[in-house]
Amino acid sequence: MKRSPTVRLLLMGAAPVLLTACEAQEEAVLYKDVAECVAGARLTQDQCQAAFDHAKSEHERVAPRYTSQSDCETDFGAAKCQAVNQGAGIQYIPLMAAYALGYYAGRPNYYQSQPLYYSHTTFGSGGYINSGGQPVARSTGNATVSRSAMQAPTRAVTMSRSGFGSSSSARGGWGGSSGS
């Protein structure tokens, strides 16, 4: 029996969704700023500030980089990108919109923080993504996220096109084929 190309495409398209559903999940909390963290009453002012500072320093290191402001704004919205010059010429990165705290099971006082970016196209109507472009949550507050979405990023990725899910690929593997 010969399978139709449509069935093959449907199966290929469903595979990432099925694999994501099997991925380990963990609890995280998303905050827009230190004040929202303190108001959440999970951490002290100093802990909230330290988590924010860590996320901010990671943001400067791993934020997705674009060669044009218009490409950045296509993904993140008008006036939601900033120019940076870190030795590779002028590039544009999205503004850090929030930060996520992932708590490790069995270690309630041990957490990791990472920067998040608000993309108006995530989840169909907008939501927060990590520096690798993975959807994390629709809004701030408590969230159950995939463990891979909370893994510490290793490096910044320079985007050579605009739009998540575009048919073009990104250098470094974000949203496209991986390059080394």
Rank of each mutant, 00 (worst) to 15 (best):
R8W: 03
L9A: 10
L11E: 14
L11Q: 13
G13P: 05
A15L: 14
A15K: 05
P16Q: 06
C22D: 00
Y31Q: 09
A39V: 10
D53R: 02
H54N: 12
A55H: 01
S57G: 00
E58R: 08
H59M: 01
P64A: 04
P64S: 03
R65A: 12
Y66S: 07
Y66F: 12
Y66I: 06
T67A: 08
T67W: 04
E73W: 08
D75F: 10
G77D: 07
A78N: 15
A79H: 14
Q82V: 14
Q82H: 08
V84K: 12
G87P: 05
I90E: 10
I90P: 05
Q91H: 13
Y92V: 04
I93C: 04
A98K: 10
Y99H: 13
Y104M: 13
G106D: 03
Y111C: 12
S113G: 09
Q114N: 02
Y118P: 00
H120V: 08
G127Q: 07
N130F: 04
V136L: 09
V136K: 15
A143F: 06
T144N: 13
A152L: 08
P153T: 01
P153K: 01
T158M: 00
S160P: 00
F164N: 06
F164S: 05
F164T: 00
S169D: 02
S177C: 13
S180H: 15
